[in-house]
Amino acid sequence: MHRVIGERSLSETRYDEATARAMLTDMVRARTLDDRAVSLQRRGWMSGYPPFRGQEASQVGAAHALREDDWLVPTYRSNAAQLARGVPMSDVLRFRRGYPEFHSDHDLPVMPQTVPIASQIPHAAGLGMAADYDGADCAVLCCFGDGATSEGDFHEGLNFAGVFDAPVVFFCENNGWAISTPESRQTASESIAVKADAYGMEGLQVDGNDPLAVRDAVEQGLESARGGDPVLVESLTYRQGPHTTSDDPSVYRDERPDLPAWRTRDPIDRLVEYLREEGAIRDDFLGNARDEASEEVSAAVRAVEESEDEAGPDPDDLFDHVYADLPPRLREQREYVRARSRR
């Protein structure tokens, strides 16, 4: 059976006021970047973008649970987790312009974003197994959405991790929708967390709009994983906007009366109210955080634009590290891409 971790007062958690304020600051930074990125995409600055508005508490709480040498394996919507982990905003934005993701050449233990659904899950299991074989005292946090649990990669990754005791926390952000498919059509299981039983691991379900609860759940999961017991964490949250900027959620999404109010309520508003009641922030905290975040985003946009006189990625990079000996089919594709890139 899975366990549920819910909200408690700040005094009842393991976290002090400074920790709570740091998480709120990262949530504001992420929201500010997300809003600006949508605006930039609408005016053609980038071709597409996957908004994460509403999921900041889930991602920031999870990222803050990581130790310095723990690995983050993000999906395409994990930008808030990447920012909280220390990835520069300019890296996130530059990637969306078609350039290599880690332009800043940081040495953070963060894998590149994965756009194919669930393909990063077996990679995370393998990364955890490699760390275990090397005797490294670290764990892996693998992020994905509820739609990924319908892919074979989900089963294969969790099965390998369970069998080989890989130090991995599989972090499912269940935002209620797999593009236009509601949760009720995604699985007949009682929850995503209960699926952990099939792989011999523990499942935790957490209020994904409470960053303190998320951090607590993920910290527990990471500690278990380091001891050889991988964990599946289901973070219940809500995607406020579209799946991507090419999506129109009004076509398929009405208000969800089956979802509780805590799951659809804005997580930043909720945390601000909570911390004010706890006496952990002053009235000017949110405004100051937004101003600083806005300046940071503007500086990131300028940095991206100023770097674009540099050479872009070589099309051969798509093919060079796939096979030791490139098969005929991929050689044909490489020549096709080369020809088009010279136009």
Rank of each mutant, 00 (worst) to 15 (best):
L275S: 07
E306G: 04
H321A: 15
R290N: 02
A289P: 05
M23T: 06
W177Y: 03
M129N: 15
G98K: 02
Q113N: 15
Y274A: 11
E12R: 04
P328M: 00
V28G: 06
V218R: 10
E308M: 08
R253Q: 00
D69N: 09
I5K: 05
V38I: 11
V140S: 12
G162R: 10
L326C: 01
E278W: 01
P88H: 07
M23I: 12
F95Y: 13
F144P: 07
C143G: 10
L108P: 12
A293W: 08
A188D: 08
R226E: 11
S39T: 15
E292Q: 12
A261R: 13
Q113S: 15
V163L: 10
D314P: 08
D229V: 08
G162W: 09
A178W: 01
G44C: 03
D26Q: 15
G162K: 11
V233I: 09
S119N: 13
R270P: 07
E173V: 08
P182H: 00
N79F: 13
P242D: 07
P88R: 09
S150Y: 04
L158Y: 13
P315G: 05
L259A: 04
L259Q: 02
L93D: 01
L330W: 03
A280P: 00
K195M: 12
R342L: 05
S58D: 12
M111D: 14
E219C: 10
A124E: 14
L275F: 05
S307T: 03
M27E: 11
D269K: 01
D320Y: 15
S189W: 13
V322C: 01
Y252F: 08
L93V: 01
C142N: 10
R226N: 11
Q55T: 10
L271F: 09
S119A: 15
G157M: 06
D153Q: 13
P50T: 00
D216P: 12
R253E: 00
D70F: 06
P328E: 00
C138A: 12
R3Y: 13
A57P: 05
V301H: 00
V4Y: 14
P112E: 06
E183F: 09
M27L: 07
V115P: 03
G279R: 00
L236R: 13
P167T: 13
I179D: 02
L330M: 09
L222E: 04
L10Y: 04
F160I: 15
S9L: 03
S9W: 12
W45R: 15
R36I: 01
E202L: 10
V218L: 12
L72T: 04
H155D: 07
H2N: 14
A300R: 01
A293R: 03
L108R: 11
